[in-house]
């Protein structure tokens, strides 16, 4: 499990407008680039002082490539991070207010309490 790395992906993409657009339009390319170039960056350290061990499992990588927020929820990704980034990518397609937000919730309707554990 690399819940931390999924959260790190969502967090670092969400705060960069260019990465948000790349993730929306070319998710496979963006996820591969991010895992190769950014996954091991310690966020407040210089390059050359990176981590050496972080990588996605195949399942996690595929969920990110597929924009599969339901699977991300199941894997224990932090739901605030997922929601914020996915709103950034897809709210613009709304035909009425909150359409995407409501559909996002409806796609998770089969989850009962307790939800998947988000502790990292």
């Amino acid at each position: 499990m690399s819940k931390y790395l999924i959260d790190k992906f969502l967090y670092t993409v969400d705060r960069d407008p260019d990465l948000v657009e790349r993730y929306r339009s070319a998710p496979g390319e963006l996820v591969a680039w991010w895992e190769a170039e950014r996954a091991n960056t310690v966020l407040n350290c210089m390059t050359g002082e990176s981590s050496t061990w972080l990588r996605f499992t195949d399942d996690e990588r595929q969920a990110l490539i597929d924009h599969d927020h339901v699977r991300l929820f199941e894997l224990g990704a932090h739901p605030f991070l997922t929601l914020t980034l996915f709103i950034a990518m897809f709210e613009r397609d709304n035909k009425e207010p909150l359409e995407y937000q409501k559909a996002f919730g409806a796609r998770l309707a089969h989850f009962d309490l307790p939800y998947p554990d988000i502790a990292t």
Binding site: F73, H78, P79, F80, L81, T82, L83, L98, Q101, K102, F104, G105, A106, L108, A109, H110, F111, Y115
Partner: peptide, 8 residues
């Protein structure tokens, strides 16, 4: 609820 089935 944020990012879950009961949101919005």
């Amino acid at each position: 609820e944020l990012g879950g089935p009961r949101q919005f």
